[in-house]
Structure formats: structure tokens, C-alpha cells
Amino acid sequence: MVKINFRKITFFLLICFILIILHYFSWLSPVEDKIVSWVSFPVNKVYSKVVSWKRGYNNISSIQVNLDDLEKIKEEKNSLLVENAKLQSYKFENEKLRKYLNFLEDVEYDYVMAGVISKGYSINPNEEISTILINKGEKHGIKKGLLVVDSEGVVVGKIEETNNLTSKVSLLTHSNCQLAATVQNSEETYGIVEGDLGLTIKMGFIPQDKEIAQGNLVVTSGLEENIPRGYVLGEVVLVERSSNQMWQDAVIEPLVDLKDLTLVSVLVP
């Protein structure tokens, strides 16, 4: 018969029970906050270092100068510069017209920068890489549902849960991350963007009569609370259309590599 020291185990379970009660009554919050604040900085540094090593290794192993690709990129860059210049002038005109017509002022958004400290746990095994933990929380004005972008302003996900000093972010490829979005085609098609199996993003409920093409940019539509309009999510890589269905789906590829994030910004209204 296996001898189990029931006294030790009972004592241990009692301590666990007390810890759980103290946590749920928030009496352990000062201790937890202290631990998180001490640990966050070194953890973020180590995590960022590892990700930069990974990036460096991947870059070295995939260096192949392809002159044709380089030419295409140069052409694309030039046309983007021209388009950007036009958009800047439209923006200026838009602001002037809004002032003349006394439109209500747009809500101003602040950026709260946060470092990634780890990857989260997820219910579906293949979605574990689609959640990250950041070192900012409710104390910094972050709440559930806010948009998270990378250093270039490209959308990476949404805040799913918050603690006092940390938050969990569902990346775009996570099934919990749903965003109201617009396809930048000739008709500005609206739809809902959702992560698919931790691998890709799909936009569903697009009416069959809307023309969507590969390469169309997808941006936030601004129809959701606390999520501004115009932030880029990705581009359409595949359109799934069937003649006997009411809707068509678009598969979207994110513009940023979601596996190598070390620094993100949260848009706080």
C-alpha cells in the first residue's frame, strides 16, 4: 500500500485554498502587482532578445538576392509614394471641409506602447501562438476590445483580457479576434474579419455581387466602438466564391509577421 502523508497534503491544499480566496477578494493584489512589475522588464528584454536572434537566423538562412523582385519592389514603392502624396492632399482637404461644416471632432486616440513578455495559453492547441501577453494593463488605461497595432501602425490584434499590469492580446489569426472591416475595392465592401485556426484570417458575409480581387487592402471600418477607421489589417490573397451560396469569403494575409512581435501599441480612446 502506498503511504501518502495526508497531513502534508491537507496542509498544502489548505494553503492553496487560502491563496485562491485571498486572490478573489483582491487582498493579494499588492503582492501580485509587485511581482509582475519586478518581473516584466527582464522578461520583456529576454523575450525580445530571443525573437531578434530568431529573426537574424531566419534572415541569414533566406538571403537570396533576386534582382527581378528588387525591380518590382522599386516600382511598387514609387507608385505608393505617388498615391501617398494624393492621399495627403485629400486628408488636408477633408480636415478643412470638416472645420467649415462644424462637424463633431473625431475622437483622439492615444498610443500606449507595450512590450511582449510571453505567449499565452489557448483552448485550441493550434491557437497558442495566436495570443501574446503584454506588460501593460488596466492601470495604463487598457481595457477589453481595444485595437493593438505594431510599430508601423498595422493591426496585429485586439485586447482580449486585462489585469492590473498585464494584458492578453488575441492576434488576428485567433478565432476570438473579430473586427469590422472594409475591403478597399471600388465599392468599399464591409464585412467581419475573423481568425481561422491560428493560421490565417477570413472575411465572411460578403455579398456575392461585390467584386473583390486579390491584392485589395483590408482596413478597419470604424463601425466598432473604440476602434478607429482606416487601420490596415492585411491584403486579400484568395476569394472563395460558390454560385449556390449567398455570401462569399475572402482569405486575408496579415501584412506583419505575427510570430516575431516584441513591441506593440494599444490604441486608447
Partner: peptide, 21 residues
Amino acid sequence: ILGLGFFFDIFYFLPFGYFLL
């Protein structure tokens, strides 16, 4: 278990006590 479980429970967004248990 008390040490590791406590750290895991405060960092990961699962109900407190999951990792302890």
C-alpha cells in the same frame, strides 16, 4: 508547486488556481 503554481496563475489569464491544481 506553491511557488511555480502561484507565478503561473498570476501571469497567465486562466482562473487562479488552475496551475496550482
